[in-house]
Design a protein around this nucleic acid. Structure first.
Lengths: 215, 215
DNA sequence: TATTGTTGGATTGTAAGACAATCCTTCATC
DNA sequence: GATGAAGGATTGTCTTACAATCCAACAATA
């Protein structure tokens, strides 16, 4: 039995994280140490430790004597994020997939289709990212998977904060088709085609996002 | 002008980091908060913050009520590290390289050859890792580059701590040749061959390391 | 008016001291 | 030899305090 204890600082960090991901703390908001401390009934010290722990993710920006601020979905941040996605996903697509990966991918696609059917934006985003995470798993490294999952968290936060004006994923008739053909190419071990489809999909996706950012 | 201030905690973190990388703090050593605090003339508070900051890297292991301990080069840690390397480097090798990347790679190879000539183990390790980092740059993401550089730091720490019984890189006649042919394959845009050479090189390297670990 | 000091409150960075919780070793007991 | 109790050592957390810095509002000046 691993028996894992959880420090107060870690709990506060998780609390703040969920607040951010739920959109209850909007981009640009400053994290006031004393406010959080009194509201949670812990010392300022503990809050500081929590914020430092949080600093590893990119959900907040930290500046000396200025405190922590919830990250904002700037164009640069998005491009940076998608460059990393492209690197990993294209790399993953250019290696012939194992049967395990294909199986996981198939399931991820099924989940995605179900989510699209339901029309729940949040769920669609989650299943979309899960599909792409399943492609990255082809690189066969849990450590890379963790790294990618960090990217996914960050991205879903950005998407959530942009979603004041709905995402309208479901409205897009190509959305599902793009994923289907990626799956088929990977399953067929046609790496060349898979790479092309992945590239096109990511390029198209970030284009849509940037358009949405401007409005 | 960016004008960056540096907090005490960050300085302490950097200090501890260099101590670790220089081998002055050996794997398994416990980081005692009060000892560090008094020795550096800062408060225990600040040391705690420094250790939390350090926690983002994997140079230390942290457990509740047990404090931080310098990471140890276990077999699992090495495998985990090399899985990540393989994922990134193979992915990078399977994409046709840009001229920029090839140029950087060529320079990295020259540096590596010079280091091998000099026979300085530390320098050889650094240039070796720099060469591989240059291949990863083909993924065209600064973020992935940062991630990889974290892997490299961790690896060079492990290598350093194993190097009580010299690395004897230079003694290995294949060492340089393996890098040369990787470069040539990448420069020729022969991705299939490049991938094979990268795979072989990494597999061979970790095999050597594991052998060294057992002794 | 626009620009440049100045001032004061708010917030963070750091220190210091305290104490409970937990760990770890040693020693006593069975 | 296994079990368990005792005690010191260390971490986790809180509290208080104050210096450094930021920031906004206001005052002074060209």
């Amino acid at each position: 039995m691993p028996l894992q204890r959880v420090s107060s600082a870690e709990q506060v960090r998780d609390h703040i994280t969920t607040l951010i991901l739920n959109g209850e703390l909007k981009p640009g908001t400053a994290l006031r140490e004393t406010a959080i401390a009194t509201s949670l009934g812990v010392s300022r010290n503990t809050v500081r430790e929590a914020v430092l722990l949080l600093g590893h993710s990119r959900l907040i920006r930290h500046e000396m004597h200025r405190g922590a601020v919830i990250a904002e979905p700037t164009k640069d941040a998005l491009v940076n994020l998608y460059d990393a996605r492209r690197g990993l996903e294209v790399g993953a697509a250019s290696v012939e997939a194992s049967d395990d990966v294909v199986a996981g991918l198939k399931q991820a696609l099924i989940d995605l289709e179900a989510a699209a059917e339901s029309g729940n934006d949040r769920d669609i985003v989650a299943k979309d990212l899960a599909f792409h995470a399943a492609t990255v798993r082809n690189l066969a490294s849990t450590r890379i998977d963790n790294f990618y999952s960090g990217l996914a968290v960050e991205l879903s936060f950005y998407l959530g904060s942009l979603a004041a004006s709905r995402l309208d994923y479901a409205e897009d008739e190509f959305f599902l088709e793009e994923h289907r053909r990626i799956y088929l190419a990977i399953a067929a071990r046609d790496t060349e085609t898979a790479v092309r489809y992945v590239r096109e999909h990511l390029d198209e996706t970030i284009r849509r996002l940037q358009r949405r950012l401007e409005s």
